[in-house]
Design a protein around this nucleic acid. Structure first.
Lengths: 242, 242
DNA sequence: CGATTGATTGACTATGTTCAAGTAGAGTGG
DNA sequence: CCACTCTACTTGAACATAGTCAATCAATCG
């Protein structure tokens, strides 16, 4: 589960990456991106099911997902697992540990995944010359806090059906930003993982999917979802959370 | 609810404050504290029930609680409220908004409270000269993320009794750091606020308190609590979360 | 001292969990 | 290519937990 394949070939650069308008370089000038590129000197392939890092690992880098998807999760003393997020291409993993140098969560690949590595000491080296990077890191960290707070809100005040609707709406929105369909996509995570994320059992998730389907809100077959009534789902979720 | 009384008298300084070993200056040298003191040029009195700031307010400062206590809460579009934390003297409010300049949550005084104001632009001015401050802010922000993740964990995987036990153990631990009794204290928040924090109704909180009392884990009368069996409470909470 | 707010307790209900059985797909080896 | 296996998912029935509604009580504040 620790198998990571490091690719030091730097044939791919941020400046030519399709995701550069979504990933860490978002909003940076061409010059800044060129400077930032020096920071990203390697990529790592993480096969499906493998961990990129575990809680307590020294946080030497933050990772931008290039292809694939990951989950982050917490584990308590009694072994209970709480999934805290699902990460898509262009999104950054490892931000929660970055500030103090120790990873707070586990990061595990949901499918064969490739991440770009931005080492902390490299970041520190160029950050003085690239103010946009400083700004970017602040923004992303803030977003990370916001994301966590939204999850607290969902777990604290929403009923199960609302949580699942919020989850679907959120996935839809993020996938559409990536250029994928906002109404038809494949879930890369299991019912159990969705349940863990939403504080529900896998059975409840499964039942809710079936019920949504019966109510013509969605069509679902295994991990293929089709959102038939996005407005209704939004309404259910409470219009935030998405 | 917006009444804030600003005290510009600087008769009280961090260097002579009893909380300086717990508050923002924690771990700073005498010299650094002296430099940092310049940042804190005012204090604000927030009467019980008043807000220090609301979601969306420009985050011009972070606030260290001098006396009293506060709660932070989120509110969604439908008016649902989720309490995200209870803050005690020496703890910092406003960190979640600090990174992006907009407050993410509301901060409301649970009792008559006084906070020290560290303005963001003042912080930016001295931060280059006080490396310990930079480090401190990172540490505190990281702690804020950790706190939020712990709440997610509690809401996601713990049963109601475990959540309440975790809450009591956590309060106990933080109060003992402040030099108060770890086994006898007064809750500054209502049953409803505890419920909102833990994702429960006020009735459930009340019933659980009664049950804990019947099981001789605690003694409780209104807001006065006495923890009779801290180890058992820890055990219930699952030994983390405290 | 009455009024108001906060807390407790009870009865009933709903929501989601648990346990269990069964099904469908994906991958594997003969 | 087909049977076999494993895993993920679905569905049902019984149960438990926590929520809702309502009445009562206690404490605090004008």
């Amino acid at each position: 589960m620790q198998k990571k394949i490091t690719l030091t070939s730097d044939s791919h650069r941020c400046s030519t990456c399709m995701l550069n308008s979504l990933c860490l370089p978002v909003g940076m000038s061409t010059v800044d991106i060129a400077r930032f590129e020096e920071v990203v000197q390697e990529r790592i392939r993480v096969p499906k099911g493998d961990t990129l890092f575990n809680t307590g690992d020294p946080a030497q880098a933050i990772y931008g997902i290039r292809v694939g998807s990951m989950k982050t999760q917490l584990e308590d003393a009694t072994g209970h697992i709480q999934v805290t997020g699902f990460l898509l291409p262009g999104e950054i993993v490892g931000l929660d540990g970055f500030l103090e140098g120790k990873q707070l969560s586990h990061a595990i690949a949901l499918e064969d995944t490739e991440v770009c590595v931005a080492r902390v000491n490299e970041i520190d080296r160029v950050i003085a010359h690239v103010p946009a990077l400083q700004h970017q890191l602040r923004r992303l960290t803030s977003q990370e806090i916001k994301r966590s707070q939204q999850l607290v809100m969902a777990l604290g005040v929403l009923r199960s059906e609302q949580r699942l609707a919020a989850f679907l709406v959120n996935m839809s929105q993020r996938l559409s930003i990536l250029g994928y369909s906002s109404t038809e996509f494949i879930l890369r995570m299991s019912r159990e993982e969705i349940g863990s994320y939403l504080g529900l059992t896998l059975e409840t998730v499964s039942r809710l999917f079936s019920r949504f389907a019966k109510e013509n809100l969605i069509r679902i077959h295994q991990r293929e979802v089709q959102l038939l009534d996005l407005p209704a789902l939004r309404e259910l979720a409470g219009s935030d959370y998405g």
